Computed example of a mutant assay.
Amino acid sequence: MLKHSFTFLCLLVLAGCAQVPQSKVDDRDPLQSINRPLYDFNMDVLDAYILRPAAVGYITVTPAPVRQGVVHFTDNITAPVDMINAGLQGKAGNAGVSLARFLVNSTVGIFGIFDVASSLGLEVVDEDFGQTLGVWGVGDGAYLMLPGMGPTTARNLTGDVVDNIALPKIALTTPQTILVFVLKAVEARASLIPQEGLLNDSLDPYLFVKDIYFQRQIYELYDGNPPVKEEPADFDEDFLESL
């Protein structure tokens, strides 16, 4: 995770931001006048000069099988957190799948580098505490654009904090947790490179990212089976799944 002084950035943003036009007011995004400049900072500075070059370099020097092994490893190391959250959500089956995946891939799969569990029908179950809070009836709260982290909500930020406190206690030391976070971030950014055209072609990239983010949250909250709802035609399913 990229460390920056959030308070300092907020002061800079507050000093220079303009009022958001009334037509663009979004109840989900009451802090848009702060979030937009932070989005610009993330894209024009952090992504342009750090994250995207790192992702491109990672793709260039890392063979595809090695990249896949990194994905498997990071998925496996977070499986205990998936298991706990599935249990807290009352999803006993998903909790059992996460436990079985962790045991199989940590042994036969050599510390999770090989995803043997999926070949046995035990697919990845992605559960986090933000989803747990959602299942418990907690609303999204304000949409937030964080420096170095990107889009989130008050609920999901709380969930991330809980998960990142729990993970070191369950399986990893704090430095190892940070390493897993960095690996996931670089791989996630690398996977989005083919989808950059969608963002670049959108009329308002900030709104596009926000709408995609909320679509993804609904997708995750309902385990890939959200209530039927008409989606904008330019929303790419692969783009949703890679966020």
Rank of each mutant, 00 (worst) to 15 (best):
Gly109Gln: 02
Asn35Trp: 04
Leu51Ser: 09
Gly16Phe: 14
Gly121Asp: 07
Thr107Ser: 07
Ala86Met: 05
Gln19Asn: 09
Phe41Trp: 03
Arg101Thr: 07
Arg36Met: 14
Val125Glu: 15
Gly96Tyr: 03
Lys91His: 06
Arg36Gln: 12
Val70Tyr: 01
Ser106Tyr: 07
Gly57Ser: 13
Gly57Phe: 10
Thr62Arg: 13
Leu11Phe: 11
Asp82Val: 09
Thr60His: 13
Asn42Ala: 07
Thr74Trp: 06
Leu12Tyr: 06
Thr78Ala: 14
Glu123Phe: 07
Val124Ser: 01
Ala18Thr: 09
Ala15Gln: 05
Ser119Thr: 06
Gly96Asn: 02
Pro65Thr: 07
Phe114Gly: 00
Lys91Val: 08
Gly112Pro: 02
Arg52Cys: 04
Asp29Thr: 01
Met43Trp: 00
Ser98Gln: 01
Phe41Ala: 05
Leu11Tyr: 14
Thr62Val: 15
Thr78Leu: 15
Ile84Ser: 00
Thr74Gly: 11
Leu38Glu: 00
Ala95Ile: 02
Leu31Val: 00
Arg36Trp: 07
Ala86Cys: 08
Arg52Thr: 13
Asp126Trp: 12
Ala117Ser: 05
Pro63Met: 10
Thr60Met: 12
Val81Cys: 14
Arg101Glu: 04
Lys24Phe: 07
Gln19Pro: 08
Val125Ile: 12
Asp44Ser: 12
Asn85Ser: 06
Glu123Arg: 11
Leu88Arg: 06
Tyr58Thr: 09
Leu99Glu: 04
Ala92Trp: 06
Arg101Pro: 07
Gln89His: 04
Asp26Pro: 09
Leu99Gly: 02
Leu31Glu: 01
Val125Gln: 15
Val61His: 05
Gly93Val: 08
Leu9Thr: 07
Val20Asn: 09
Asn105Gly: 04
Ile34Lys: 08
Thr7Ser: 14
Ser33Met: 10
Leu9Trp: 09
Ala64Cys: 11
Asn42Cys: 06
Val124Glu: 08
Leu14Ser: 13
Ala86Leu: 01
Pro21Ser: 14
Thr74Ala: 10
Gly69Arg: 04
Gly93Glu: 11
Ala100Tyr: 06
Ser118Lys: 11
Val20Ala: 09
Gly90Gln: 06
Leu46Trp: 13
Pro37Val: 09
Pro63Leu: 05
Ala64Phe: 15
Ser118Ala: 08
Val61Met: 11
Ala95Val: 00
Asn76Ser: 09
Leu103Tyr: 07
Ala15His: 05
Pro65Ser: 03
Met43Ala: 13
Lys24Glu: 15
Thr60Tyr: 12
Gln22Ser: 13
Ser119Trp: 03
Phe41Cys: 07
Val70Lys: 08
Ile77Val: 15
Thr107Asn: 01
Gly16Ala: 12
Gly57Ala: 11
Ala95Lys: 00
Asp47Phe: 10
Thr74Leu: 10
Val71Leu: 14
Val56Cys: 13
Gln22Trp: 12
Ser23Asn: 15
Val25Phe: 14
Asp115Gly: 01
Val116Glu: 03
Ile84Leu: 13
Val56Ile: 15
Cys17Gln: 08
Ala18Tyr: 11
Arg101Trp: 04
Ala95Glu: 04
Leu14Met: 14
Leu11Asn: 12
Val20Met: 11
Ile34Gly: 02
Ala55Ser: 14
Leu38Thr: 05
Val81Phe: 10
Gly69Asn: 01
Ile110Arg: 08
Asp44His: 08
Asp126Ser: 15
Val116Leu: 00
Phe114Glu: 00
Asn42Glu: 06
Ile59Cys: 12
Ala79Tyr: 00
Asp75Gln: 13
